[in-house]
Design a protein around this nucleic acid. Sequence first.
DNA 1: AACCAATGGTTCAAATAATGAACTACCTGT
DNA 2: ACAGGTAGTTCATTATTTGAACCATTGGTT
Lengths: 269, 269
Amino acid sequence: MGTITKALDLLGYFSRTRPSIGLGEFVRLTGRDKATVHRHLVELEQNGFLEQDSVTRAYRLGPAILRLTSVRESTFPTRAVLRPLVTELSEDLDELVHASMLQGRILSPIFHADPKRHGTQVSFDEAEMQPLHATASGLVVLAFADDALREAVLAGPLAAHTDRTITDPEALRARLVEIRAAGLARAAGGFDTEVASQAAPLFGASGAVIGALSVAMPSGRGTDDRLESFRARLCAGAARATVSLGGTVPPDLAALWAAVSDPRDTKRA
Amino acid sequence: MGTITKALDLLGYFSRTRPSIGLGEFVRLTGRDKATVHRHLVELEQNGFLEQDSVTRAYRLGPAILRLTSVRESTFPTRAVLRPLVTELSEDLDELVHASMLQGRILSPIFHADPKRHGTQVSFDEAEMQPLHATASGLVVLAFADDALREAVLAGPLAAHTDRTITDPEALRARLVEIRAAGLARAAGGFDTEVASQAAPLFGASGAVIGALSVAMPSGRGTDDRLESFRARLCAGAARATVSLGGTVPPDLAALWAAVSDPRDTKRA
DNA sequence: AACCAATGGTTCAAATAATGAACTACCTGT
DNA sequence: ACAGGTAGTTCATTATTTGAACCATTGGTT
């Protein structure tokens, strides 16, 4: 792990529920030496990627990030492109829909929309990263990822977020085969016990998977029949999102999705 | 310059007008060795801070930044706080208003609003960084900055963006004294020949300057009388923005601003 | 008041990781 | 076949990062 990665890694510890982090907490979170962490924090701060609260001495994300997002979105508007699509799909399905993008071995939410038409809702934190082996989004990305990434994740430790998380590499491998055959992933309780979700992959220009489009709901509403009824629209949404992002869906998967959206074939599992 | 800074520095070269940069161009821009730059780019990419276009091989800003902005804005909403204030002031003054924050030795725009009520407008790129010695925003920040930063900038090279940029350290030092006495800065043609602007500083919780609030217009509309008429409202806006951001205006400056906004004192320069 | 247990931050010899000149490989047009 | 332009890689040298031990300050406890 290079110095740059170590420093950038520090930024990853921030989330909506942990918006500012002190030196000591960073040391505990990372397991790295205090001096090392401190120098990294200082260097990040000098570049505007962190700010230090002058009274608590804790660090929070800095303003440099805002400018970079502004550049990225004004020239390659991922969020802006996904926003209407995700919103529309969530209105259509009456459930929370979110799009996430692959970042290394983790999935990062880009945008989510929830029409909140039901009494219970999934609480979704757009600032929380998701593991690849525990959510429908993660599983579908993993299923369509290249061998290098898949093997790296299968080899690495598979944290048990709940008692229903798949932690056995071979069981996970078998599951990924099913997902590839189905063209999307369903998962329930693997990351949050009360949540069921269904996700389809998004692809980049080179045909490699870059993220996922997912619909999530409380387990009670995530019956097989209901998820099945979402299937065609979710796949269509993923296809549109892929195209909007300048990507291409691999031909065989596109054919599979097209077949599914055809009424004659909707009886398939 | 540490490795981390060198890598983060690469991200700074992106802007609205230069949204993707290839290896060779980076080498030219930075003057660093190709191997070094390449390894930095790869490491940034692995962490999601860059993406490589699979066909042109050029790099663009990656999705990791989007998540970080989401975290920052949902927990420490600088942009969200400044947006209404900047918009309102621009509507009030009928000119482009922008807020920028200090990042190291450079100023980065956070938000801008332009009512576009005139035939000519200032073109403002929210993704372009600004030097501290050439714009009204930069000058006012420099004037109220701590000695360390001021001396560092005065010592460093002062690039001549136009023929009216102040490049002589002593002339600049004298100018900063005037600005401190006035409580805000006026500048015309120092960064862009056609633009005149007036800026007031923003302060953090510790009373240190953290940025600036500025009104900018084509030189023709930037007469002394008109700028003078903006003065009280600009200072009031900067005071409100500082408070909204959790900061405090130094007492002596607050008194100066209060005196200015008092009708009895508006005749002063 | 003395003490303890936190916190954040600093130092400097030792170890490791970053560096860069030279290299390969690949296009594109001549 | 070659020239000139990309991007990317190698490996001995060099310089930077590292971390155990250190200090400083704060807040709570006896």
